[in-house]
Design a protein around this nucleic acid. Structure first.
Lengths: 218, 218
DNA sequence: ATTTTATCGAGAATTATTTCTCGATTGAAA
DNA sequence: TTTCAATCGAGAAATAATTCTCGATAAAAT
């Protein structure tokens, strides 16, 4: 079934958006939804929506569309969001704090079980119910507790070191918020969070608009 | 010069990565850098790097590469990251708290000057030196202070309402962290933050790997 | 019962992006 | 001075993503 067939990054980006929309529809009692309807709401081409949803294995019916509940289930399964995996978070700064406080992370397949930091003032404290442990224990605890996912929210210049400790402990995947390209063995799954991309896109457009304000037509 | 010529989303995603790498090189004293070198470090095709950098207007020299300082400057200018714009943040929850605490946001063109919330316990307090004001004052203050950028970190079901208030006040751009597709006038610049995409990509790969562990070849 | 309309799914056409090729340029080495 | 190696920049080729086209299907309307 859900074999690792190739799915484009663009499609993978859109799937969570569909899922959120479908959940809203589901809450409002909708039982069927068409790709045209989804496309209209998200301003996407209906064929694109259809091709995207195809990867989840869900099938629709002409004139009717797709069953909402099935589709939600199919996307969640496809994304692996109904199997939650334990995670360690390294770097209990502002961003780490926010992630620890975000309960619904487990709806997206990730459950943070502990945080790690090198600041003695933070070590031993609790953040949103999770202990902050010394970074020196990261490797051995990854190994002992068979933790699969490591989240890196330390400053850029410590990210590689922390990642190396995780890998040494036998981690499977790393979610990296530091703006560096980590050097890791081939078999490690890495996801770099590009918070900066949004700021790039936003800032560029704002700058352009202020330079040539409200040009109509063209 | 920096006219709003079309630049692909993929290129725009990579530019901040180049910039971070270049800053590292610059700190280490490098004066010139070639696309081949950048490509090797980031595991990208050299031609792709060259074509990406082309959009910034910076020119390189055969055999030598690009002058690091110029290139940094060119990318920053292109992205608009050396002109900082004031921003209001709506939703002083965990994520809002983290953004307010992230000082370096101004290195990316955004300076949050105040936060807004509807929780009476938060209103009147300060978060990382910025006041939390009642959400009811959002519209009028956007107007009065000519704030350009609105950041939405409220729950999904309030996002549209908050966005409407910002637009009514005359905002130019919205950075939306809520997982909904906002309905806004054409002229408003919107950037949706897809934190969920990373979780989709990560979770999917982790699930696949655990299902068919370490298949070699094929 | 027949017609109409909305939609799916498959494949073709289009468009965009990435990768390859090659001549020109430049500094370093012979 | 001449040769060599690395790299740029432009354009061609290859690959990938999106959009269009169309026959099939299924429910609602006539």
């Amino acid at each position: 079934m859900s074999h690792t067939s190739y799915v484009s990054e663009a499609t993978l980006r859109r799937l969570p958006t569909y899922l959120h929309l479908l959940r809203t529809h589901h809450q409002q009692g909708a039982e069927q939804v068409s790709c045209s309807a989804i496309g209209k709401e998200l301003r996407l081409d209906p064929t694109q929506v259809r091709k995207d949803l195809e990867v989840t294995g869900s099938v629709g019916r002409p004139r009717i569309g797709f069953p909402v509940a099935d589709l939600i289930e199919a996307i969640e399964t496809f994304l692996g969001w109904n199997n939650v995996h334990d995670a360690f978070l390294a770097g209990a700064g502002n961003l780490g704090y926010a992630l620890l406080g975000y309960d619904r992370l487990k709806d997206y397949g990730v459950h943070i079980v502990a945080a790690f930091d090198n600041d003695p003032r933070k070590i031993g404290t609790e953040v949103h119910g999770r202990q902050v442990l010394p970074i020196g224990r990261l490797e051995s605890l990854v190994q002992r507790m068979h933790v699969r996912i490591g989240i890196i929210t330390v400053p850029a210049d410590h990210a590689q070191t922390v990642a190396d400790r995780m890998v040494a402990g036998g981690i499977l995947a790393i979610w990296n918020f530091a703006p560096v390209s980590l050097r890791l063995p081939q078999h490690i799954i890495v996801q770099n969070e590009e918070l900066y991309y949004s700021l790039a896109a936003l800032s560029r457009q704002v700058g352009d608009r202020l330079r040539s304000p409200r040009e109509k037509g063209g």
